[in-house]
Each structure stands twice: as C-alpha cells, then as structure tokens.
C-alpha cells in the first residue's frame, strides 16, 4: 500500500496543477494580510465602536490570532474548489490520459490501488491545510504580533486569552482537515464516473454550493435533511472558539462551550468520508475500464 501511496504522491507533486492551490492560498492570504496591514486599524476601530463606548479596550485587538480567524472564515468556504482540483482528477484524469488501464492491468488489486490513490489525495489535502496554517497563523503572528483573541459575533463578544488560543487553532485546523477530506472524498468518488476531471470538479462544487444554500435557507422543508448534509458540519471548527463561561461569568480556560456538538459534527464528517470511500471502492471494483 505504501508503494502505491508514494507513487501517487510522486505523480501529484510532479503535476503543475497541484501548485495552483498552494499559490492561490498564499496569494489570497497575502492580499488579506496586506489589506489589514494598511487599513486594519480603521476597520477594527469601526467594528469596536459600540464596545469602546461601554468598555475600556486595551492591547492589540488587530493581532495575528484575529487575522488568522478572519482569514479562516473567508478562505475555508473556497478551499473545497482547490481540493476538488486534485481529488476530482485522481481517477478521471488517469482515465482521460489512458493511463488507468496501465495501472489496472498491474498485479495490484483494484481496492488497494483506489485506497492508495485516496490516501495520496488526503495527504495532498492535509499538506494544503498545513500550508494554509503556516500562512494564516504563523505569518499573521509574525506580521501583526500576538495578543488576546477578541471575536465579535452578532450579540456576543468573546475574549480568549492568548495563552488559551494556540491549541484552539490546532484543533480548528484538525477539524478543517476532516471537513476538507470529506470534500476530497466526494470529488474522488465522482472522479470514478468520469473520463475527464472537469466534470467531477464542477459536480463537487455544485453539490457543496447547493447543500450550503439549503443550510442557509430557513425553510422547514429542508430542516429534516440539514443534520445529514455534510456542509452543515463543515464549519464546526468555529465551535473551538466558543468558550465555556463559569458560574461567576468568568471564562473557563481550555474549555469548549459545546464540545459534544463539535464532536458530533466531526463524527458526521468522518461517516461521510467512509461512506464516499466505500461507494468508490464498490463501484471501482466492478467498473469496466474502457478508456
């Protein structure tokens, strides 16, 4: 299995299209950071206006941790497209090139071949998220410095102590990785049915967009389906930034307000990954390779 994974990773990282995603992530992050570096203070002051009238706000509100939070919120919605670029090509791209028959006629079982490809696309997804973490978190910290993280939600302001933030980012990136592997496994499944990668990439994005719209619509018709849509759970990483409040209205350091909900979301995503992978294997094992 390791041989197949290594071969697939070698092929992924020798393809120029692989680096589009890394380049795009770096460019978007850098542009947001540049924008905030130049105009960020005004932006933050505007956002903190109401709060400043009541409270005395000290320290650097616009710091690396807040930047990472803002960037993650913006970027994680679009990353699925970058993931689908590679995962949607894993089988369909080989079929289109005519190399799938070359692989499938070697003394390796189709299940192992497919699992090897899936693991390689997952490694790519993890690599992209690590790359994103380096740029969004570490580069932001270097550029804007570190302080407590102040997050403004509709009616609530949460302040998380700087000493309590880093592990939350690690957990959030871990959760985001599961969410992105879910998208990757969907694109991977769709790539088995196609002979060029455009179809699976567009189909993956269409599904993500349609499901996201269904989530945001408050119509009772879709309420039953919502808990079962993977897109409902993809933003579960935000749960790590909701802190439990103690009896004296003080923050409980190291706590998550609704950890069971976050874990449920993670489990739902893992369930989707396993389902997509099982269907992929079942289809691929029986597939006539005509390309």
């Amino acid at each position: 299995m390791w041989t197949i994974v290594r071969i697939e990773l070698f092929k992924i990282f020798r393809k120029p299209r692989t680096y589009i995603a890394f380049g795009a992530v770096a460019a978007i992050v850098w542009l947001i950071q540049l924008g905030f570096y130049v105009d960020g203070e005004t932006y933050v002051q505007f956002g903190m206006q109401a709060l400043s009238e009541t409270f005395d706000v000290e320290g650097r509100v616009l710091n690396g941790y807040l930047m990472a939070y803002i960037i993650l919120q913006t970027l994680l919605v679009h990353v699925p497209l970058l993931i689908a670029l590679v995962s949607g090509d894993m089988v369909s791209g080989e079929a289109g090139m005519g190399t799938l028959r070359l692989l499938a006629s070697r003394p390796v079982s189709r299940t192992r071949l497919l699992l090897g490809k899936f693991l390689a696309s997952s490694v790519y997804t993890v690599a992209l998220l690590v790359w994103m973490a380096i740029w969004t978190l570490f580069f932001s910290l270097w550029l804007f410095g570190a302080d407590d993280l102040v997050i403004m939600k509709s009616e609530v302001v949460t302040q998380i102590l700087r000493s309590d933030v880093m592990w939350r980012y690690a957990a959030a990136f871990g959760f985001a990785t599961i969410a992105m592997v879910t998208v990757s496994s969907l694109a991977f499944l769709l790539s088995i049915f196609a002979e060029n990668s455009i179809g699976p990439i567009i189909a993956t994005m269409s599904i993500v967009i349609v499901f996201t719209i269904l989530n945001s619509l408050g119509l009772p018709l879709f309420d039953t389906a919502k808990p079962w849509l993977f897109t409902t759970h993809m933003l579960g990483w935000k749960g790590f930034f909701d802190v439990q409040v103690g009896p004296g209205n003080e923050q409980v350091v190291g706590s998550v307000e609704n950890l069971p909900a976050v874990l449920r979301s993670a489990a739902m995503l893992v369930g989707h990954i396993l389902l997509f992978l099982a269907v992929s294997v079942a289809v691929f094992r029986r597939k006539d390779i005509l390309s």
Binding site: T3, F10, R14, M97, G98, T99, L103, S105, R106, V108
Partner: peptide, 25 residues
C-alpha cells in the same frame, strides 16, 4: 501488456514512467 495506444504520463520522463510501472509490478 500494451493496450491500444501506449498512453503514458507525459509530464514524467521515460525513466520515471518505467520506475512507476516496475514498482507496481
């Protein structure tokens, strides 16, 4: 086997193509 056209990985070298298929075999 060579099945129909010898489609290989165009973005890899001949030696790399051979190495991949040798390993898989």
């Amino acid at each position: 086997a060579v099945i129909e056209k010898p489609d290989l990985y165009g973005y890899l070298t001949g030696r790399e193509n051979l190495r991949i298929l040798a390993r898989l075999s």
